[in-house]
Amino acid sequence: MAENEQGIKLTAEQEKKRRSRSLAIAGVLIGLVVLFYIVTIVKLGPDIMNRPL
């Protein structure tokens, strides 16, 4: 596309919104990692290391 070959210049406002969206997505992803980590610990419980070998 010709427009793309020339490169689209984002306005300052668009740049700002894109940055805030990217940060929000990063926050959600990190949150999910932490959530699954904590729930794994909760589900396994403290006795996970205490098992017959």
Binding site: I8, L10, Q14, K17
Partner: peptide
């Protein structure tokens, strides 16, 4: 498609 949209986090 190129800019990623005009919506802010608040809009979502």
């Amino acid at each position: 498609a190129w800019t990623g949209g005009d919506g802010s986090v608040g809009d979502y």
